[in-house]
């Protein structure tokens, strides 16, 4: 089977996954012990309001019809309205407001580990069993065992009191930023704004990317250790290819292949982890919106957001398969080639 038909098959397999994922959400929301209409009304318990909410949510229909409507609305991307958190606002509008912050946070928490963790891992792999290797490896192991929410709490406390603790003020350092507010994302092409937004997100992105950083370091290290001893590297060395060129052309490129699923897998983890980090840093992103919608019983909003997350994660999976198809020519040939 060719690479592209393998890819097409993978994409085709995503359809039932979106379908079943949405069904699970439906089961939790509509068949669980909580009546969405009663939850929206709250404790006030006005019967008239209750029936009208019931009708507009379609809860007076039989369950199978509700299910069909639910699927139809979501698959045609009609996400409906928020009922409690931001009453009457379309969910798409809320996503438009909240998503950029999460994307900004997610982007940097994927990029930072890549540009810090990987080089450290490659360095450790090129200098195995030296003191710096041990320091980097052990640091990576501990760094990835840290719970994000705890690390975030520590970061917030240390940065807000950096004046007393280190005699240097983080908030006014280079650009004026706040620590526990959402970053300003207007006019990012102006260098000043860009740097301000970057600095505002930096602590949160470091926290959210902490586990990935440790992992990428470890995996980068083992990948370099492995490829370093491959035959083609030895051949290149025997041919007299300079050491630096061997490292860049032969070791790094091949060491990158096992890292693709790791990086995309992490991008997905960030969705769930962003709830805690966004709450601690008060970044009003999607994770925070989901949390607020959940504890305020805004179940229609929760359902639409969950569908949005499913689409995102399936999208990330497709990107991963695409990258694999592009990078590794062995993919798709079943057992023989790989």
């Amino acid at each position: 089977m060719s690479r592209w038909s393998y890819f097409a098959r993978r994409v085709l397999l995503m359809i039932p996954i979106v379908f079943f994922g949405t069904t699970i959400t439906f089961v939790i929301l509509r068949m669980g012990p909580i009546d969405p209409a009663a939850a929206v009304i709250g404790a006030s318990g006005d019967t008239e309001a209750y029936t009208s909410v019931r009708r507009s949510l379609g809860l007076d229909q039989p369950l199978w019809l509700q299910y069909v409507d639910y699927l139809r609305d979501l698959f045609t991307l009609q996400f409906g309205y928020s009922w409690v958190v931001n009453r009457g606002r379309p969910v798409w509008e809320l996503i438009g407001v909240y998503a950029p912050r999460t994307i900004w946070l997610g982007f940097w928490s994927v990029m930072l580990p890549l540009f810090v963790g990987l080089p450290l891992g490659f360095y450790a792999g090129l200098n195995p069993n030296t003191l710096s290797d041990y320091v980097a490896s052990f640091g990576g192991i501990v760094w990835r065992a840290m719970p994000n929410f705890w690390l975030a709490v520590i970061f917030v406390a240390v940065l807000t009191q950096s004046e007393q603790l280190f005699g240097f003020q983080w908030e006014s350092w280079l650009v004026e930023t706040n620590i526990v507010t959402p970053p300003e994302l207007q006019r990012l092409w102006v260098p000043e704004n860009f740097f301000g937004a970057f600095k505002a997100i930096l602590p949160a992105a470091l926290v959210l990317g902490s586990a990935s950083m440790g992992n990428e370091m470890r995996i980068g290290r083992t990948a370099v250790l492995e490829t370093k001893n491959e035959n083609y590297v030895e051949t290149a060395r025997a041919k007299g290819v300079p050491g630096r060129k061997i490292v860049y052309k032969h070791v790094f490129r091949n060491a990158l292949i096992p890292l693709v699923p790791i990086i995309t897998g992490e991008a997905f983890l960030l969705l769930g982890g962003s709830v805690l980090v966004e709450t601690v840093f008060s970044i009003n992103g999607l994770g925070y919106l989901f949390y607020a919608a959940t504890i305020n019983a805004d179940l229609p909003l929760v359902g639409s957001l969950m569908f949005f997350f499913i689409l995102l994660s399936v999208g990330i999976n497709i990107v991963q398969d695409l990258l694999y198809t592009l990078i590794d020519p062995r993919v798709g040939y079943g057992g023989e080639g790989a």
Binding site: I17, V275, F309, N317
Partner: peptide
């Protein structure tokens, strides 16, 4: 895959 498509912590 369907279960994994839902962010675990959020579910």
């Amino acid at each position: 895959d369907s279960i994994q498509a839902l962010p675990q912590l959020l579910v």
